[in-house]
């Protein structure tokens, strides 16, 4: 049983991320949406576990001016959000 976690708050809400990361199992995926995409900035991302499977919605990153600043491989389209929802057994939303 794997879980897709979504998180939509900016990095100043560090407790939210701590609780989310603490609740992850090894095969889970964390998807950053809305203001959660700012976690992709290098200084914030460095605080997250290296082994974490982490993605972010391209639309939300692009809207916020992040695409030149973050790694392309981390960005996914909406159809991949749906794929991840299907591939995992459930979805947990952190907000």
């Amino acid at each position: 049983m794997t879980t897709l976690h979504t998180l939509n708050q900016a990095p100043s809400n560090v407790n939210l991320m701590q609780s989310c990361v603490g609740s992850l199992q090894p095969d889970d995926t964390l998807l950053l949406i809305e203001d959660g995409v700012y976690w992709l900035l290098n200084t914030h991302r460095a605080k997250l576990p290296a082994a974490l499977k982490i993605k972010a919605l391209r639309l939300d990153a692009q809207a916020r001016g992040l695409t030149p600043l973050v790694s392309e491989v981390d960005l996914i389209e909406m159809d991949e959000f749906i794929n991840l929802s299907v591939l995992h057994n459930k979805i947990v939303s952190w907000f």
């Binding site: 049983m1 879980t3 459930k90 947990v92 939303s93 907000f95």
Partner: peptide, 17 residues
């Protein structure tokens, strides 16, 4: 504990926040 929380989530069918 955090590990037990992750197991609780893993063993649930649906999680509502």
């Amino acid at each position: 504990t955090k590990i037990e929380i992750s197991q609780l989530i893993a063993n649930s069918d649906i999680v509502l926040t």
